[in-house]
Amino acid sequence: MPSLAETQRRFFGALQRPFRGTGRRSTEMPASDKPHDPAFLKTADQLLRPSPTLIPAECLELYHRQYWFRLLDSLEEDFPGLIRLIGKDTFWKITEDYLLTHPSRSYTLRHLGRLMPRFVEKHLTDQPISHRAKSIAAIEWTMMECFEAANGITL
């Protein structure tokens, strides 16, 4: 049997794989009929046992979709202006790439969008809107920083 550390690395690795399965179809993400890759299914079979009603891949899929739902919802909530500027389709495409490149490195989801301004500019390179997209993402990130910052000095 794998060690606890190995179990957790493999389980979490599976959650971080690209958003597939039925969960994706219940979001506004660009449609994809790609199934889970063989590594996802192998991890499920090796780590998990079937429940009375679900096979191991379905059990892992429930955690996989919750992982993606939670992160997508957080970024959608944090960047309403960016969504209006670049449109939902572009936003979701960028967001999917963003999460695959920059998974959460903070205890709080409030910090998830920290690298979005630079990422969105890079993603939209050569498009006239790229600088404005970076600016509005930076403003929205700054609003989050203000939300949790210490009170400023009274002048």
Binding site: L4, F12, L15, Q16, Y63, Y67, R70, Y107
Partner: peptide, 22 residues
């Protein structure tokens, strides 16, 4: 539960294997 690996966070309450090691 557990919820992060090497400083990357799931933001979920992930289930433990019920082993003596765990």
């Amino acid at each position: 539960c557990w919820g992060s690996v090497d400083g990357t966070f799931s933001h979920d309450l992930l289930p433990m294997p019920y082993t003596t090691e765990a």
